[in-house]
Write a protein that binds this DNA or RNA. Sequence first.
DNA 1: TTAATGCTTCATTTTAAAATTAAGTGTGAA
DNA 2: TTCACACTTAATTTTAAAATGAAGCATTAA
Lengths: 226, 226
Amino acid sequence: MQDQFSQVATLIGDPVRAKILWALMDKRAYTATELAVYADTTAQNISMHLNKLVKADLLTVESQGRHKYYNYSRPEIAYAIEALASLLPKEESKMINTADEKPIRFCRSCYDHLAGKVGVTLTESLLKHEYLVKNDNSFSVTGSGEVWFDQLGIKLDELKKQKRHFAKPCLDWSERKHHLAGALGAALLSTMIADGWIRRIAGSRAITVTGKGEAAFLEHFKTDIR
Amino acid sequence: MQDQFSQVATLIGDPVRAKILWALMDKRAYTATELAVYADTTAQNISMHLNKLVKADLLTVESQGRHKYYNYSRPEIAYAIEALASLLPKEESKMINTADEKPIRFCRSCYDHLAGKVGVTLTESLLKHEYLVKNDNSFSVTGSGEVWFDQLGIKLDELKKQKRHFAKPCLDWSERKHHLAGALGAALLSTMIADGWIRRIAGSRAITVTGKGEAAFLEHFKTDIR
DNA sequence: TTAATGCTTCATTTTAAAATTAAGTGTGAA
DNA sequence: TTCACACTTAATTTTAAAATGAAGCATTAA
């Protein structure tokens, strides 16, 4: 038992790995290169360390093209990191306000991410209100979720008949969190456009949230979408 | 910030130091020699490691004649250890269903409060009966809870005066659920021992529930603790 | 007083694991 | 196709820190 314990502790205790785990505290997924920059080491080295963390089931990887996105494998990880951080000398530990931390440099070309943010917030709200629950690589609709989607005029039975995935988490590259994809995600998007919650911007993938949408979001989720 | 974090993590991560910290989870103070035997190393080596832990304010020492007794410097250390232990690979922790591991999973002390299946069941019962409610990172006592604790002779006012956390959730490594820690958790444990509900097993963190304790639990919560 | 015990200190050695060098694979973009 | 990029793998080197050996200092017990 203590051996096991000592192994996990050792795993977290390496300076580079500790930095990796620290960086992931904002629950976003980061690529190996980003983490290498953050931890100030080489790609090879970060690769080795990430491997160890994945093997020990502290992290999960998700491949997307030539990128690999890393994330905590389970919520206990975040809890443990926080518990460890609470041991720091008092003045130092003004908890994880990543705002005043040096943000990781994103190695990519950026455009407007409104769609991403809204998608992620929406998905998180659906989870929080337990209309959805997240499984391994899918979402499922709960009882209260069925009511909710029905109320919006979304026919779950029909969506389930489709050949494509019904409700799948897709990693958002700007937000680094999962948003709802699959048939259900598509249905939700078209419903929201039809109901005037959001509006496409011509000639662009960008989307605006209307005043009506903002109000609807507040009503449904008691959360401000902005 | 991450440097600080990485330093604490590194400190805990050494196999010998991890064993020291694990041994101290029963809130008993141990001498350097005892810890050396436990961690299977030499006096010189344990001395070096203990020094590092004391310097980092994870442990305190108390000299008594030619002996030195070591202990956690503060209860947060125990929370962090417990949280770290909850990261152990799941299958492995199930595998250790050996006879001598069973009692410690069932009921044990986590520093100064009750953990294991009994600790978690107790906490869940308190929540279910709404003597406690769970907040983000704390518990609070309800009106009926105040009556209940008072009935056991636990003086909430006095506990609140203490510098430490009043009632805090601590992640249980065997159950993977929260149990009650903080001043209230400590008071509850000592009351239960004083009232003969539970009994410490010498030389172990394991705790047994007495017949009286079983009956009391049934009476208070209408739930069988076994 | 002497001897044994409990622990520490310091100089030295050992060692495990982190980092580097160098060469790869797979993917996407031009 | 070709190139650049993101990342991996394997062999080798480096290194920090853990462990050891050989003192020594208090304290207690004989």
